[in-house]
Design a protein around this nucleic acid. Sequence first.
DNA 1: TTAGGGTTAG
Length: 656
Amino acid sequence: MFQIQTPQTLQPTYLPTTSFHHYRRRRRPTAAFRLSPSFSATLTLTNKNPSIQSLCKKGQLKQAIHLLSHEQNPSQHTYELLIKSCAHKKSTQDAFTVHRNLIDNGFDQDPFLATKLIDMYYELDSIEHARQVFDEITQRTIYVWNAIFRALSLSGYGEEVLNLYWRMNRIGMPSDRFTYTYALKACVVSESKLSSPWRGKEIHAHILRHGYESHVHIMTTLVDMYAKFGCVEDANLVFSSMPVKNLVSWSAMIACFAKNGRPFEALELFHEMMVESGDVLPNSVTMVSVLQACAALSALEQGKLIHGYILRKGLDSILPVMSALVTMYARCGALELGLNVFNQMGKRDVVSWNSLISSYGIHGLGLKALEVFKEMVRLGVSPSPITFVSVLGACSHSGLVDEGKLLFDSMVKEHKIHPTVEHYACMVDLLGRANRLGEAAKIISDMRDEPGPKVWGSLLGSCRIHCNVELGERASRSLFELEPTNAGNYVLLADIYAEAKMWDEVKRVKKLLEAKGLQKVSGCSWIEVKRKIYSLSSVDELNPQIELIHALLVKLSKEMMEKGYVPETKVVLYDLETEEKERIVLGHSEKLAVAFGLINCSKGETIRITKNLRLCEDCHTFTKFISKFTNREIMVRDINRFHHFRDGECSCRDYW
DNA sequence: TTAGGGTTAG
């Protein structure tokens, strides 16, 4: 039943029982049928009712509604304009008045107006009313179906869209090109938690069966759907099969690579687009993904080129581009350049502030991040949930435990932001890193929501740092259930056992890993030299200078040992002789990259290295020694944060 | 009448 709600009755407790049906009258025969032809002509003129329409167009909704109450026979077009006005003005109360009047005048079964009403209620965040309009209309044209799909899918009710989609198929209503795009979008909304694209694949099959395989919009939506599920190969197959690609298709595929850990391919595809796509030119959306790829790769020189392009094309007034630039510079280790971009921005939104806060955070400048946060609040910018993830993360990297706890409180009490698992994960990390594991565990046990893998992962990571076997086992038990195929969790537990010299347990975890067919992610470090990126890893030795690199490392290691460097071999998960362990740690990818940098970067130039995992204790100590020994500045970004090594010290003050 | 790609964190 359709229920009328007045503003104060929007709370469910006040729901009136009155239904629109009480007001509904039979559709009156139109005047044209009852009156003489000449009169009907006059009436048609009146029906157009220019005054209501012109008032709507002028945005004078109240006056238009006032006239409506005196109008004898409002037309479909009049209602269309009124509905649009209500949506535009965000006036739910007026929307109810217009809707009630429309029913009174017998338009309640008009499919065109039903479509408009559904759109309007979506705009007004009254999805319940959009549903009711859909439920009550008997003649459901494809427009009506598509309207409810759009409304539900944009409001996050993907599951419902898919159920309706199957219902539509069952009753034999054929889909059109719009239906497919909405249904595909709904898959992403409904399954984001399950991360399985099987329903999207079914719709993909329908699309092919109905001959839409060369439709640019649908194919682009498919690329994006696969991208959101992390199915890069599927996305690429669809993209490659497209006979016609436009800027949006290229951008979707570039974003797919950039967002799914394939930044090299993102940049490659971008270059391909520039060279091979004819007249397709990138816009701000494309540039954002390209900047993300540069950031992921720490490709500072590439990023600077892109920055130049952005300036030349006048894309530097677009906020998302500027925020992405700030992040790119910071993640490439050029915090100052990021700050310059931020300072030059004419306008800033919450995302720009978040970018700067997290930039300071990953560089270990927690106090600066807090300062920026306070400045942002002082200027009246409302922090978002992500702001708190950023600023809590910054506190965590800098060991600002009490500040972080105060922030968490203020988030809930002052800023009225309900903490999500991300925020709890930050708190667990903040306390855990500071070796307040008991408090961290208490946060988890006090949580009302299910902790989830991020929260347990934070606890396990902290247990690894502080070698807490008991809590580590508890966290990993939950993690093995929640994400059985994440090799990282097994490795962390094995690390904890190894540090505790519980070699039998190490073996047991390794066997578990093997039995599941999982493999430890091998360490990889990379470095940009003269706009080219060189990656180094201990498992493949493709670098032509590898002999030179090894020789340099052996020489440096010996010399540094004389000066007090002691290799930290506890990071090796095998029960081996010390010498063998030392040989293994000397082959870590980060050390290879440092040596490569020493050989290839000019004197005085900062060596910037990026690593795909957390920096190990030995690489950390080694790089501190190297920085003093060779008088070089070395900057390493690991999976979490930056380490600036200078004169034998690290910016993280050994807290990471 | 309706459509596709992007910003910040972890």
